[in-house]
């Protein structure tokens, strides 16, 4: 059984804020919820290297929400940017120009369009070179900043601006969500975790654990998005909770490639999660797409059967 060591109680979550308010992100942004909690463990001695996306608005000129530093990169090159920052810090420290005590963490922030798609080769390079950095992908399952276009993280049957319901594809998105966790894991970084901000202690614990490792520390954060997923902003935690409780978003970590599930859900039927969101409404109205819903359920069931088998 996986156990939390640092974060056992809600009141151990630090009070201090590191991502300050006044941002231009949507009211109820699930990605911001995840970042805010992560930053409570990461602190202020950080350089965020941010691929273009919603989060670049966190430091839209002339305002920044970060007490630490922030660097803007193209969508395809945030890990390369992180390499440059890390190298510069290392050189400065080696030359005695920066005291070791003033070293900072290098943290990539990337949306799923960047992470699963445009920056995949750059990430692969950084993983291969064992770059000492954090990578946080806030996964809102579409290209959010430009108006919710299909990304390889978009799940089967979700409606996006570029995968509407059509005669050919009445259930909208025809592709399956790319398994980025396994793509990362194939590179054997020391630490990978999935998190969901509705499970704050699990999230905080994973960031605390990651700190012990040198090399790539990879995070995939479920980022429920009221704007793109079409639900009431107040329901962001509810959506995240159902993603986890239906088994669609497994909470897990991989240390040097060895996977542990950090929470085993009882697994509600997937309808509970799908029904809450406008991007899946076409599965229920005007007619119910039984096949599509069954397909989603079968894939979740198969995933967890495999997990149970591996555990045994």
């Amino acid at each position: 059984m996986w156990q939390r060591e640092t974060f056992k109680k809600i009141k151990q979550i630090p009070r201090e804020e590191h991502v300050l308010p006044g941002t231009a992100l949507c009211a109820g942004c699930g990605g911001l919820e995840a970042l805010r909690l992560a930053a409570k463990v990461l602190g202020d001695h950080v350089v965020y290297v941010n691929a273009a996306g919603c989060f670049t608005m966190l430091a839209a000129y002339p305002y920044t929400s970060f007490k630490g530093s922030w660097l803007y990169t193209t969508m395809g090159s945030a890990p390369a940017g992180a390499q440059g920052v890390r190298d510069a810090l290392d050189v400065l420290i080696a030359k005695g120009k920066l005291p070791k005590s003033e070293d900072v963490k290098v943290v990539v922030l990337g949306g799923d369009g960047s992470t699963y798609d445009m920056a995949l080769s750059s990430t692969s390079g950084a993983l291969h070179r064992k770059l000492d950095f954090y990578y946080i992908c806030y996964d809102n399952e579409a290209y959010g900043n430009t108006g919710m276009q299909l990304s390889p993280a978009t799940p089967y049957a979700a409606r996006t601006a570029t995968s509407p319901c059509s005669v050919q594809h009445p259930a909208a998105t025809a592709q399956e969500k790319k398994n980025i966790f396994e793509i990362w894991r194939a590179h054997r970084p020391p630490y990978i975790a999935t998190v969901a901000p509705r499970y704050p202690l699990d999230l905080e614990e994973k960031f605390a654990r990651a700190a012990a490792f040198t090399g790539p520390k990879m995070f995939l954060a479920l980022s429920a998005c009221p704007t793109g997923w079409v639900y009431d902003p107040g329901e962001t935690p509810e959506v995240a909770k159902l993603a986890v409780e239906t088994g669609l978003w497994p909470l897990k970590e991989a240390i040097n490639g060895v996977v542990t599930h950090t929470y085993i859900p009882k697994r509600k039927p997937v309808e509970a999660y799908l029904k809450l969101q406008g991007r899946f409404r076409h599965l229920f109205e005007p007619t119910v797409h039984t096949d599509a819903i069954r397909h989603i359920q079968e894939r979740v069931d198969a995933y967890w059967q495999q997990v149970t088998k591996e555990q045994a």
Binding site: L20, P21, G22, T64, S65, K67
Partner: peptide
Amino acid sequence: TARISAAGNSVLRETGGWR
């Protein structure tokens, strides 16, 4: 190219009017 050298100054931007 924009540079912001005041850390955490987003608090100057009040978003209370969004409600």
